[in-house]
Design a binder for these strands. Structure first.
Lengths: 175, 175
DNA sequence: CGATTATGTCAGCACTGTTGACATAAATCG
DNA sequence: CGATTTATGTCAACAGTGCTGACATAATCG
């Protein structure tokens, strides 16, 4: 549309970056960082949302499928910690996934209060469909960017996360 | 909570990268990438959401304030392009911001159909409060990660974005 | 002038997150 | 054992955000 006019105003957005002093972070660099994250996340999630809409599902369904697939047998409480939402929010979506047989619940053996979560075959299929698009996206981006860039990406993302999440990410065996 | 137990199960997440199978490594790297983006975005937006909740606002309000602050005088259509939402979705939030005097609308001079958007002082204040937290987050992350990592982050994020958005980001003068 | 464009609005629906209240079963502690 | 805590679930209400569909106005354009 009026992207040309708009673009004139954001000329600084794409000026050649010859980063001289990393400690002197310009306002514009930080704005650009915010926008990179915004646009990347926006496009990263867009196709998954479209797939989910077919099933009358939303992004929350994908998140559950993803993390249950990632940690088969995960208790509900751990999932809540990962997602940082209330049990009521989780319950609505999770019970739907259980009812429609994407997710299976088994009582815990050590602690029989727990409901351990597993993907059914149906759940695995949908999870794969959703996540594979995102993996391909990262595979392409990683390949284009190169190993050094990937390590840089990792560092910056870890720096953006809260200390708690970063700690978990880096030393999962820690109490 | 049960993070210890969970952690046992996600051992692959942080195991030293000495595993031989290259296919497994690749899969795991990509999963890790997805999770880095998820956790970073989750924590990146959390504090802003809390601030917005005070004003009975949501993330959409922040996005409008942000981009109007970024491109003063932006027409509504351009904002729609940036946000990738429908005019109805935008309108609900934008008219609220206009009504409560965070955003000012002026008819365009060249094209009087357009409503050019500007932040009021009130809007600037709130935008600054919201964005400054995010800028500080990136400032700290960038500082810790170093210049090389920042460039890597940029590359990967650009690779994740859709080609259209990447093009705009990289060559804003292009038609 | 007729068609298109920029913008707005009303209505309805769906997903997702919140708070508050209440409930059950199992583990834990004194 | 009995009291308490923990893990989980559920009902209800409310708010924010995105969508579709339909309709409206004013300005621009050919």
């Amino acid at each position: 549309m009026l992207w040309v006019k708009l673009s004139r105003k954001c000329a600084t957005m794409a000026e050649p970056k010859t980063i001289v002093n990393p400690l002197f972070l310009r306002e514009d660099d930080l704005r650009q960082a915010i926008e990179l994250l915004f646009f990347a996340y926006r496009d990263f999630t867009a196709r998954g949302d479209a797939i989910l809409a077919r099933q009358h599902f939303g992004r929350a369904h994908h998140r559950i499928l993803y993390f249950v697939g990632r940690y088969p047998g995960i208790p509900v409480g751990d999932l809540l910690d990962i997602l940082n939402i209330t049990k009521q929010s989780l319950s609505r979506v999770l019970s739907q996934l259980v009812r429609e047989e994407y997710v299976l619940q088994k009582p815990g053996t050590r602690d029989r209060r727990q409901r351990l979560l597993y993907l059914t075959d149906k759940g695995k299929t949908l999870e794969r469909e959703l996540t594979s698009e995102q993996r391909m996206r990262f595979a392409a981006a990683y390949k284009d960017a190169g190993a050094v860039a990937v390590e840089g990406f990792r560092k910056v993302m870890l720096g953006i996360m809260d200390a708690k999440a970063r700690k978990r990410f880096l030393s999962p065996f820690e109490t």
